[in-house]
Amino acid sequence: MDWSGTGVDGTPVRMTGELHFGWVPGGRAVQDVRIVPGRGEIGEGRPPLAFHGSTNRFYDPSIDAWRSTWIEPVNGRIRRFIGRPLDNEIIPLSTEDEPQLHWRFTAITPRSFRWRAETSHDARVTWTFDKGASPKAG
C-alpha cells in the first residue's frame, strides 16, 4: 500500500507498506494486518512513524454497527472503534480515549479503497487529518 502522512517535524512523509486481510474465525470477522513501512524498508518497526498492527472487526446486530479493535505493538496502542456507513463511506469512531479518532474508508471498490485517519482533541468539534493510505488488492 501507499501511505502518506506528517512526520514528527511536520513535514510530509510518504512510505510503502503491506496490507493483508481476510475472514477469521470461520468467516465471522475480518482481520487486517498493516505493516508500514514495509518489511526491508527504511524505518521498519521503529516508532514514531512505523505502525505494524492488526485490526479485527465484526458486525454486531445489537447495535447495527461494526465493532473493531486496532492493536499496534510497535507504538503500544490499543483502540476500539464502532463503525457505521455514512453516505458512500464507512466511518469507524473511537471515543473511549483521548484524543478521539475516526477513520474514513472512501472510494471503496471491489479491488481497492482509500483510508484516512483523523484526530480530535476537542470532543469531536474539529478533526485534524492524520495519515492516509491507498491500499489496493493484488
Score class of each variant (00 low, 15 high):
18 E>K: 01
53 G>W: 00
29 A>T: 00
89 E>C: 07
111 R>M: 10
85 P>K: 06
119 T>P: 01
87 D>K: 06
53 G>E: 01
93 L>E: 08
30 V>R: 08
135 P>K: 03
130 D>E: 13
64 D>W: 01
43 G>N: 11
29 A>V: 00
132 G>L: 02
14 R>G: 07
16 T>S: 14
47 P>Y: 01
13 V>P: 02
45 G>P: 07
55 T>K: 04
57 R>K: 14
45 G>D: 10
98 E>V: 06
86 L>R: 12
61 P>G: 09
94 S>H: 03
42 I>Y: 05
86 L>N: 07
67 R>E: 14
122 D>R: 02
22 G>Q: 02
121 H>G: 13
20 H>M: 10
2 D>A: 07
119 T>V: 08
55 T>C: 14
33 V>L: 14
94 S>T: 00
33 V>M: 12
111 R>T: 15
135 P>F: 01
22 G>L: 05
29 A>L: 05
86 L>A: 13
2 D>C: 01
44 E>V: 09
19 L>H: 11
36 V>N: 02
65 A>K: 08
80 R>K: 13
110 P>F: 01
103 W>L: 12
43 G>I: 06
69 T>F: 01
130 D>G: 15
57 R>C: 12
42 I>P: 12
83 G>L: 08
118 E>W: 02
64 D>V: 09
95 T>N: 02
9 D>W: 10
12 P>C: 04
80 R>F: 00
15 M>K: 14
131 K>S: 13
121 H>Y: 13
85 P>F: 04
108 I>V: 09
78 I>L: 14
85 P>H: 04
26 G>L: 08
37 P>N: 06
37 P>I: 05
113 F>S: 00
75 N>E: 04
40 G>C: 13
130 D>Q: 09
108 I>M: 12
11 T>F: 09
